[in-house]
Design a binder for these strands. Structure first.
Lengths: 107, 107
DNA sequence: TTAATACTTAACGGTTTACTTAATTAACGA
DNA sequence: TCGTTAATTAAGTAAACCGTTAAGTATTAA
C-alpha cells in the first residue's frame, strides 16, 4: 500500500496518472510533452508507476503505450473502505454538529 | 493531494495512521512503543502527518494526544470518486470477462 | 546497411528523507 | 524549587529521490 501511495506522492506522477485516467491510453512521448519535462525524467517516473503496479505498458513498434491499472485504484478504494467505519462515523458526527449549529436536523 | 499521499507513503506513518483509526486517539508515547522506534523519529513522523493534515494534536498535561483527521481520509475517497468512471468501468469490464470465463453471469 | 524515431539506461550533482544520540522545552508532583 | 515524565527540536550522517545531459537499445523506413 505504501508503494502505491509513494507512486502518487509526486506531482508529476499524479498528473500523469490523472491524464492517463482521462485519456485512457497514451504513448510515453505524449506524456513527455504534457508534463513539460525531459524524456528521461518522465521515463523514470513511468518506471516508478510501473513497479508500483499503478500503470501497465504496451509496446507497439517503437512506441510504449501506458494506461492506469484499475486494480491499483481499486486497492486505494478498498483501503479506505477497510477503515470506513472510522471516517464515516466521524464525519457523520461532524455533519450532525454542523446541522445542529445550522439549526436544522437531517434525520 | 500529493502531500496526503506522501504522508501515507512511509510504512511507519501508515502503521501509525491505521493504529490511530482503530484506537481513536493515542498519546505519542503509545505510538512510540507500538512502532518500536526512537521518540524523536516518531515525533518527526507525527509532524509530517500533522503538516499534511492527516492527524490532529490535542495537548493534555505533558501528553500530546493524536487522532486521524477524518477529512483527510474523505479527501482520498473524493479523489477516487472523481475518477470513478475510469476504474469502475474498467473493473466492470474485467468482472464481465471473468464471469464469462467462469460460465456464470452476474446480472 | 544506414539513418531516424521513440524510449530507456547510465552517470552525475543537488536536495530531501529518515534515522541516530544529545540537548531543550513544558507540565506536574514531592 | 527540584526532579521526573513526555515530547519536541538540534545536529549529524547515510540513503534515496529527482532533475539534467550523454550514451545505448530497438524498431521502422529509405
Amino acid at each position: 500500500m505504501t508503494r502505491t501511495f509513494a507512486a502518487l506522492a509526486d506531482p508529476t506522477r499524479l498528473t500523469v496518472v490523472e491524464e492517463l485516467m482521462q485519456r485512457g491510453e497514451l504513448p510515453a512521448g505524449d506524456l513527455v510533452s504534457h508534463v513539460g519535462m525531459s524524456p528521461p525524467a518522465v521515463s523514470r517516473h513511468l518506471k516508478v508507476l510501473r513497479e508500483a503496479g499503478v500503470v501497465t505498458q504496451r509496446a507497439d513498434g517503437t512506441k510504449r503505450y501506458y494506461r492506469v491499472a484499475p486494480e491499483s485504484m481499486r486497492a486505494i478504494v478498498d483501503w479506505t473502505i477497510a477503515h470506513r467505519s472510522f471516517w464515516e462515523a466521524s464525519l457523520d458526527r461532524l455533519d450532525a454538529i454542523l446541522a445542529e449549529e445550522g439549526g436544522a436536523h437531517n434525520e
